[in-house]
Structures are given as structure tokens and as C-alpha cells.
Simulated scan of single mutants.
Amino acid sequence: MPQFPRALLCLCFVVFASAFARADHHDANQKNTYVIVHGATAGAYEWKETGRYLEQAGHTVYRVTLTALGERSHLSAVGVNLTTHINDVVNTIRFEDLHDVILTGHSYGGRVITGVINEIPERIKHVMYFDASVPQNGESSWSHRPPPADLLVKDGRRIPSWLNENPTTYPHNVGHPFGTSVEPVTYDNPAAFELNVTYVPFIATGTDPDERAARDRNWQNAVARGWTVRTFPGSHTAMLENPQDLAVLMQAAVNDTNTPTP
């Protein structure tokens, strides 16, 4: 067997180690494209600071405002349904020609991104649900609970009892398109089932995570699907309370992988 000079062996080892270190460094500093979907009555403005921290880290961020909400609240809500909002996101991804997207949804936005991954799973790299709805195929917002007794609908918008209909400052919440509550979501694409997903419940001070998990249907659906669960401290709008740390979590969670389920 031929003998290689010690110096040549050392040189080969150094070159290999250097190449491995560069590859590892590249993975650690991989830049991603995030598409962020907000919750009901809100707008993309709620994710402005979190998006800013992601951009400062070198990532590309698209904050989609859904039709008739946020800065698009001047548009009529009549006839707007879940499909409208799914198309808002799908068309952003298609018209911007985005691939390997890190798709995230907050609250009601979980229903929207469920429809998005069902339609264009080939464009998605990873999915994140933030304190969000995790619906089953064919479920609407009211599949497991009746509409609130004080339900008020005006001009195609559902007006929550807490909402100030005459705000004087911007940005502000607005009535949510009623049609999104009654349309069931479609989640039946096998390719969507294969995507790696991270579910992140926001845990308010004084809340027992185990107790929350035991009663939270969304959390239970996530676990049943083998998704990674990461908790984050804060209220339902934790992204407004601690946007920087949430941005850190969003960068770390892109490498989460699903746990195989029976």
C-alpha cells in the first residue's frame, strides 16, 4: 500500500477541515425569506418590529396585509372570505416569485396559512404557527363553538365587542370580514402534510403550559401531527411585547423537523 508523505496528509486534512468549517458557517448564517401573516382585525403593522430584526440579520421579509384589513381597510369587506385571504398570500408568493419560503401565521392567520400550504406546498420550506388556529380539513372558525351571543356584523364586517369603531390614532384594529368565519378551510394535500412545522403558543404570565396544552385544541392538533412545539412568553400579541426575541426564535426554528406519528 503506498505511503503518503506526512506533510501531504496534513495539508489534505487542513483543506478538508477548512471546507467543512465554511459549509458549517454557511448553514449557521443561512438567509431565508419570511412571509408573515397577521391575525384577525389587525394588519401587517403588528409584525413591523419583528420583521425589522429579521431584516437586520440579513433575511428577506414580506409582511402581507389581508384584504379589507390594516392599510387595506378602505377596501370593502363584503364578499371577502377565507379564500380571498389565502389568495392574498398565495399571490404574494407567486408574483414575487418566492421559493423556499418560511411561512408564518398568527392567530386567525393560522387558518390562512393552512390554506396556503395546501395550495402551494412546493413553494414552502418551513411553516410556523404563532398562538394560531390549527384547523382540521373542512373546519370553519365556528365548527367547535357557536358564534358569540353579542355577534355584530356591519357592512360585511364582524365587530368584536372590544373594538373601538371610531379610533383616532393609527395603526388600529378594524372589523374583520365576516365571510372568513363561516368558510371551511381545505387541508387535504399530502404534500402539505410533509412540510416541517413549528407551533408556538404564547404563554402569558401565570399560565400553566401543561394546563393550556390540555385544553387547547390547536396545541393538541399540532402535537397529533408531530409538529415541533416551542413556547414563547407573553400575551396573545407577544410579537408587540418582545419582537426581538421572537425574531431570534423564528431564525432558530427553521431547522425544526417533525416527529413521525403513527
Score class of each variant (00 low, 15 high):
S133F: 12
V78L: 11
S18R: 14
P184R: 02
D131H: 08
V182S: 05
G206V: 04
V116A: 00
I113G: 04
R63D: 11
G79P: 12
R6M: 12
G51A: 10
A204Y: 08
A57L: 07
D208C: 06
Q56T: 15
K154M: 11
W227C: 07
A7C: 13
E49A: 14
M1K: 15
R111W: 13
V134C: 12
G79K: 11
R158F: 15
N164M: 06
F232N: 06
A23C: 15
H106D: 03
T114R: 09
D88I: 02
M250L: 09
N164Y: 09
G43V: 05
Y199C: 01
P260A: 00
P243T: 08
A222K: 00
E55S: 13
T84R: 09
V112I: 08
N173A: 14
A42T: 12
A247V: 08
L103W: 01
L195W: 00
R52W: 13
P160Y: 06
N118D: 07
V127L: 05
A191W: 02
I36M: 13
P262R: 01
V90Y: 02
N258C: 09
G109A: 07
P177T: 08
F13C: 15
T33M: 06
P201K: 03
P148G: 02
D256P: 07
N173C: 11
T67F: 12
S235T: 13
P147Q: 12
A222C: 04
F20A: 15
N118H: 03
I117T: 07
N221I: 03
E241G: 00
T50C: 13
T33N: 05
G206P: 04
H144C: 11
T257W: 01
P146D: 01
N218G: 09
T261H: 02
